[in-house]
């Protein structure tokens, strides 16, 4: 019986096409669709803030340079990972991440909670030439980020695109995107005040690369690295983690 059925199937290209589509669709539908409907999939974290324009620009540099090929941003629920990197990652922590950067390979360490663990100065020195700081490192040197001015004129469009997809950026944030990106990298200016006003007092305003005359891609990338794991405290509240989120002011 089975044989006759298949003989029919393999004599018709249309039946075969429909059969392939049917067989191949089930797995994806069963595994993906419920992720949008089951409430517990993503935890609730009312304190979670969105990326500032400078951090988002930094994230886009992280994406552009393909950092995910060597660094994960996903601490697994394993004892050694939690002890090495901090509380395991929650789904809510990447709810605004497009794309997610969980990664699949650790040629370098996980970065999910790197924010606040090192100084801005360390990050700049390390990115400029990793072997100046860590002699055994095999990470590429990113000195060119110091020389590249950050493009800021299109940041409003970036925030607007994110809002279309559901990230809660306000009109004011979108309108002031370029100003806020500049302000976050130049403390003690009027622009800086706008950043903390719109994104919260905890937002790190700093001359990340030490130069305040212009904003570089280095500023943006370091701003992003410094906020990793610090958009919400949910991972510290909802788990058995004993430590507190790192504070760069310490």
């Amino acid at each position: 019986m089975g044989d006759t059925f298949h003989r029919k199937l393999e004599r018709s290209s249309i039946l075969l096409t429909l059969g392939i589509i049917a067989a191949a669709s089930v797995g994806g539908i069963v595994e993906i669709a419920p992720l949008f409907t089951i409430d517990e999939t993503v935890e609730h974290a009312p304190d979670m803030r969105v990326y500032t324009p400078l951090e988002l620009a930094g994230r886009n540099i992280y994406v552009r340079e393909g950092c995910y090929a060597c660094h994960s941003q996903m601490i697994r629920t394993l004892r050694d990972e939690v002890e090495r990197y901090g509380p395991y990652s929650l789904a809510v922590e990447s709810q605004y991440d497009r794309p997610m950067l969980w990664g699949s390979k650790r040629t370098g360490p996980d970065l999910a909670r790197i924010g606040g663990k090192y100084s801005d100065f360390w990050h700049v020195a390390h990115l400029t030439n990793p072997r100046d700081v860590v002699p055994e490192s095999n990470m590429p040197a990113y000195a060119f980020l110091n020389r590249s001015r950050l493009r800021m004129d299109d940041l409003s469009a970036h925030l607007a695109a994110q809002r279309t997809l559901g990230v809660p950026y306000t009109d004011e944030m979108i309108e002031n995107a370029a100003r806020d990106a500049y302000g976050q990298a130049t403390p003690d200016t009027d622009f800086a005040a706008g950043v903390t006003e719109r994104y919260g007092e905890a937002t790190q305003v700093s001359a990340f690369d030490g130069v305040t005359t212009h904003v570089t891609e280095m500023d943006a990338l370091v701003a992003y690295l410094q906020v990793l794991g610090r958009l919400t405290d949910a991972a510290y509240r909802n788990t058995a983690a004993s430590e507190l989120p790192p504070d760069p002011e310490d």
Binding site: G27, G28, E31, I32, L35, F36, T41, V42, N60, A91, V92, E93, S94, Q95, Y96, D97, R98, P99, M100, W102, D154, A157, H158, A161, Q162, T164, L165, G166
Partner: peptide
């Protein structure tokens, strides 16, 4: 995905975070 603008090579995927992870590895 939706592009940042028609004149931009950059786009943002419509899938966020955990759903993006599942779709990506599917």
């Amino acid at each position: 995905a939706i592009p940042v603008s028609w004149g931009s090579a950059k786009s943002y995927t419509i899938w966020p975070g955990v759903q993006d992870a599942m779709v990506q590895w599917w």
